[in-house]
Structure formats: C-alpha cells, structure tokens
C-alpha cells in the first residue's frame, strides 16, 4: 500500500504518476500532428516577438533604469526559464476550478495516484516547450553577451537560480490555484501572479517603485526567483539596500514556498472533501 511507504517512495510515486499521465496526454496531442506542429511554431514565434519588443526599446536607449540590454536579457531569460519550467510541469493546476465543476477531480480522487500529480499532468502538452526554447535561447545569448567576471560562485549560482526560481513558480502555481477550491472561478488570480509576476521579473527592479519591489521580497517572494540572486551575479547594488544575505536566500525562499503550497493544497483538498463543491 502506497501510503505506508517512506516519504521518498511516495515522492517517487508522485513523479512517476505525473510522468505516466503526462505521457498519455502528450501522445494524445501528437495524434493531431499538423495541429501540434502549427501551435508549437506559433508559440515559439509569439514568444520571440515578445523579446523583440525589448530589443526595440534598447535601440532608443543604451540603458533601462541603469541596466544594459544583456543584463535585462539575463533577467528576461531567467524569469522565462523559471516560469516556463513551472508551466511545463504543473501549469495545468490552474484549471482546478474547471476540473471541480466537470467532476474530473472526483475521478482523480478515486485513482490510486496522488491527485496533485494527476491534476498537474492533465491536458499536458509538449507545446509548452515553445516558451522554454525561447527562454533558453535568450538566456544563452545574454550569458555570452554579459560583461561579467565569471568567478566560480557566480557560475554556480546560475543553475541554482534556475532551479530555485522554477520551484518558486511551481509553488505559486499550486498555491494560488488552491484558492479555486473556495472560489471556483478565481483562475485569474493564479494567472496574474504567475504570468504577471514573470513579466515583472523580466525588467530591472529599478524600473519599478520601491514598494512594488518590497512586495516581491516580503509578500509573494518572486524577487528570489531572479532579481535578488542576479544582483550578486551581475555585481549590482540592491535598490532596497537589503542585507547581502538576501541575494543567497533563494533556496530558503523556495523551501518556504513549497511548504506554503503544500499546506494550501492540503487545506483546499480537505475543504473540498468536506463540502463536495
């Protein structure tokens, strides 16, 4: 029986369940090959146009609130990779309210696989790779173009940033979607925090009012995705004047976000199972 096994075995089973169901959806979508190729191409094209806007902006100015194009590109790339990875893995939880209404969540609850894995893999599509391809391309370009002295700590911090950033966005996807257990049509809340937050992080923090930046440090901790660690990698001063430790606190923030998301998910599922709506 699964629930008697160790935590590691349960986590492994959760990942395997996700993989099994995501693979089924991916194969389902591939049966419509032309539609898949077209939508993937459209996805890549649209995201590249998105970055083109940033390049156009820099044709009129050498700096954006004190940040150069490669530096801004680094923020853009890291933010997009983190969001894209989270969207790829758990983006489907955003449709929680719809799954509740259609009764699909009930079907998931009577299968011997974690409901969150099933929900996250529901309607999975490889199309979501489009966003990641663009994100990695922009990040790769910015890394090559950046004028940074690549000490070992800075080099190591890049993958750590991507990992923690993805975890934070995953947690935000799940945590904000849980609101739909109580308010079934509140999908926009999750969308505005994840997609809206990612757009925020694509620009230098100095562009925004200090209150906004403070909100991403002490409120929804999106600043830990890339803004704060980027200050160390790029060797820039903190616009809020926070202690240097904040630049290295992303793993802690990611862990806290995961914990908060897990609590929200459990509370939401408990509320659902005791109200049925």
């Amino acid at each position: 029986m699964v629930e008697d096994e160790t935590l590691a075995a349960r986590a492994g089973w959760a990942v395997r369940s996700w993989w099994l169901i995501a693979a089924m959806w991916a194969r389902s979508m591939l049966t419509y090959r032309a539609s898949f190729v077209l939508s993937l191409a459209a996805n890549v094209l649209i995201t590249f146009l998105d970055f083109a806007v940033l390049i156009l902006m820099f044709r009129h100015t050498r700096q954006l609130a004190g940040w150069t194009l490669p530096e801004t590109g680094f923020l853009y790339g890291t933010s997009s990779v983190a969001l894209g990875t989270a969207n790829f893995l758990v983006g489907s939880v955003g449709a929680l309210g719809e799954r509740v209404r259609s009764g699909a969540l009930d079907t998931m609850l009577i299968r011997p696989a974690p409901a969150l894995s099933q929900l996250a893999a529901e309607r999975f599509s490889l199309r979501r790779l489009g966003r990641l391809v663009q994100a990695f391309a922009v990040l790769g370009w910015s890394l090559a173009a950046l004028d940074v002295r690549w000490t070992w700590d800075r080099v190591l911090m890049v993958p750590a940033l991507l990992l923690c950033g993805s975890v934070i966005f995953c947690a935000v996807f799940v945590g904000c979607s849980c609101v739909q257990f109580w308010w079934g049509d509140a999908a926009e809340l999750q969308n505005s925090v994840t997609y809206g937050g990612s757009t925020l992080l694509q620009y230098p923090p100095t562009v925004f009012a200090k209150e906004v930046v403070a909100g991403t440090v002490f409120g929804v901790p999106l600043a830990f995705v890339n803004w704060l660690p980027a200050l160390h990698i790029l060797g820039r001063p903190d616009p809020l004047g926070l202690p240097v430790a904040f630049r290295f606190a992303s793993p802690l923030a990611a862990a806290l976000c995961m914990l908060a998301a897990a609590v929200a998910w459990r509370a939401g599922l408990r509320a659902y199972r005791s109200t049925g709506s």
Binding site: M24, T107, P112
Partner: peptide, 26 residues
C-alpha cells in the same frame, strides 16, 4: 474510505455511465 482513500482505490472499481475514464484520442 475517507482516511485511507488511496489504499481503497486499489480495491474498488467505479464506472460513471455518463463520463468515460478512457483516453479519447488513444
């Protein structure tokens, strides 16, 4: 059932006449 939902899931079968659990396109 409420306390051991996952364990019970392996021992019950459920069929909804108006909803399929089969994979539509496969």
């Amino acid at each position: 059932p409420a306390a051991r939902r996952a364990a019970l899931a392996r021992r019950i079968g459920v069929v909804f006449g108006q909803r399929t659990t089969l994979w539509w396109d496969l």
